[in-house]
Each structure stands twice: as C-alpha cells, then as structure tokens.
Computed example of a mutant assay.
Amino acid sequence: MEVGFCGPGLMGAPMIRHLLRAGHMVHVWNRTPDKAQALAKDGARVVPTPGALASSVELIFLCVSDAAAVEQVVFDPEHGIAAAAQRTHSATRVRRIVDHSSIAPAATRGFAQRAAQLGIGWVDAPVSGGVAGATAGTLAVMAGGAAADVEAATPVIGAYAARITHMGGAGAGQTAKLCNQSIVTATVAAIAEAVSLAQNSGIDAARLTEALAGGWADSVLLQTFVPRMTRRGDTPIGAMRTFQKDVDTIAATAYETGTPMPVAGTVQQILRLAAAMGLADADFSAFVDVLQPGRRN
C-alpha cells in the first residue's frame, strides 16, 4: 500500500522503516528536510509539502510535536493536506489521517470535525513504548475515531505496533495516552526520588534494579531509568519538554473534566522547575538532576 508520513523524528523514523520493510511504499515529508532525506536510502519517497501527499495516497500518518504542528500540517491553507485534498480530482485521494502525535483530546475532536467536512476520516492514535518500542516494532497504540477508520488503518499500523486498542470516538485515544503519561511521569519522578534517597544515604543506587527486581516496585521504567539516572553518556530517548507538554495537557484536561489529580500537579511543578533550570532539552532521566542540582557539575 502507498501511504504518507509526516514527521520522521525519533519515533517516526523507525516507524517508517518498519512500514518500508513490510512492503509499503512510504511518501515522507518533514519540516526539516534532512530528516526526510535520511530515509530515502531506505526506500522512502520524499515530498516537498504535506499537501503533496493528498493526491497520491489514501492514508496519511502524522507524528509531530504538538497540536499547532498538526493544524499546520493538515489545515494550512496553502500547503496543508486538507487544502490540497479540496483541490485534487485524482482517483487516489487521501481518505484517512492517522495522528500519532500526543495532543489534547479537545483539539483532536476539533480536527476530526474539520476533516469530516472534507470527507476525511480521523484516527487519533498516540503510542506508548518510546524509541525502543518504535525501533523494535512493539508499540502500544491507543486509538480513537470511527470503528471503520480504525479497522482500515489497523493492518498498516501493525507494521510497527504489537497492540492496537480502539478506545472510542474521536479524542478517546488521546485521553488514554494522557492516562498513560500520568502514570509514566509520576513513576519516573518517583524513581528519581528513590535514586536520590539511595545516593544520599550512601548506598549504591545502581543496584536498585537488582534489589527490587521481581517485587512490586519493579517495572520497565525502573529497569530503564535507574541505570540512566546513575551513569552518564546514554543516548537521549526523549526531552523533558515533551513530558512537560503532556503533563500540562493532563492538567488542562483534568480541569475540563473536574478530575482531581494532585500527583500529576506535583509532577507538573517539577517539570516547570526543570525548565527554569535549563533542563527542557535534557533526557527524561533529568528528573534526578532537578532533585540533585549539584549532580550536573
């Protein structure tokens, strides 16, 4: 199948490679052209604008930074996917957009309504599993949208996902991702506290993975972040600003729905402090640097 993909970043690039290995032809666009061109050697076809995809593929995937980027890619009046879809009379025309970005449920519902007016189905499909999951092709996908649209996209998404769960209508996938991120960010913050307590108490914090393995505190996050918090030089797997964006969205959605989330509120303040300390672009493991500022020196 020929598909389009906007946003070959840390997550998008390995997802595209899985699509190519599965036999799909992938047309790729990125705001930074070099990131798209890097995939040409793998067989991807680079296009100059998002709108260039609208007349050549029926299914387009997005994996961009935030809601503003989604709106620009899809609804820009000059180069956006929707504008090009309106202009084209090709037999091949975009029918569905699958958005892997993590954005607010309310924004997603608005985008889905605007797309529907053009006859384009919208699937919000944020993912969990990080760069490691994208590379391994084992991502968990939480999907929202019409059942027919989710069903149509599922075989293609299966190239890089181990599980796809349809959570409900438009925005339901994004809400599920916020639930995921509330657990992830709170857990990583708690791991940072545990590492700090161990180090300040004079024990080898790096051995916590061994000591807690198999117990209630054990998890993929524990096994991933204790090593990253107790050594230097690991390749970044994501930036703190991404966590801050997600937790700010959690806070806004909690307010909209009247949901008390005191733990998420505390994590939000830690992330804001991290940004004030110049750690917005630091790896996710920088939670421990907020708790131990002298560690960075």
Rank of each mutant, 00 (worst) to 15 (best):
7 G>L: 08
9 G>V: 10
12 G>A: 01
17 R>E: 14
18 H>S: 03
19 L>Q: 06
22 A>I: 06
22 A>C: 00
23 G>A: 03
23 G>F: 07
25 M>Y: 02
25 M>G: 10
26 V>N: 08
27 H>S: 14
31 R>K: 13
31 R>M: 06
32 T>A: 14
34 D>S: 15
42 D>I: 02
44 A>M: 11
45 R>L: 15
48 P>Q: 10
53 L>E: 11
57 V>K: 10
58 E>G: 15
58 E>N: 04
59 L>D: 00
61 F>A: 01
63 C>L: 04
64 V>E: 11
66 D>N: 15
68 A>C: 05
68 A>D: 13
69 A>G: 07
71 E>F: 04
72 Q>T: 15
80 G>A: 02
81 I>E: 03
83 A>F: 08
86 Q>M: 11
92 T>S: 06
93 R>E: 07
96 R>F: 05
102 S>I: 04
102 S>D: 00
104 A>M: 06
108 T>H: 08
109 R>G: 06
110 G>W: 01
112 A>F: 07
112 A>G: 14
113 Q>A: 15
116 A>C: 08
116 A>L: 14
117 Q>H: 12
122 W>Q: 07
124 D>G: 12
127 V>W: 03
131 V>K: 01
131 V>R: 00
134 A>N: 02
137 G>E: 00
141 V>E: 00
141 V>Q: 02
146 A>S: 04
148 A>I: 12
148 A>E: 15
152 A>Q: 10
153 A>F: 07
156 V>M: 12
158 G>K: 00
162 A>M: 05
165 T>P: 00
166 H>L: 15
169 G>D: 13
170 A>W: 04
177 K>W: 11
179 C>Q: 07
182 S>Q: 12
188 V>T: 09
192 A>G: 07
195 V>T: 03
196 S>I: 00
196 S>Q: 14
202 G>C: 14
205 A>R: 00
208 L>E: 03
208 L>S: 04
209 T>C: 08
212 L>C: 02
213 A>F: 04
216 W>C: 06
221 L>R: 05
231 R>F: 02
232 R>A: 13
234 D>G: 06
238 G>E: 09
239 A>K: 13
241 R>F: 03
245 K>E: 00
247 V>T: 15
253 T>S: 08
256 E>L: 15
256 E>Q: 14
262 P>H: 12
264 A>W: 05
264 A>H: 10
265 G>N: 14
270 I>G: 01
271 L>C: 02
276 A>E: 12
277 M>V: 07
277 M>C: 11
278 G>M: 05
282 A>L: 08
286 A>Q: 05
289 D>Y: 09
289 D>F: 05
292 Q>H: 05
294 G>L: 12
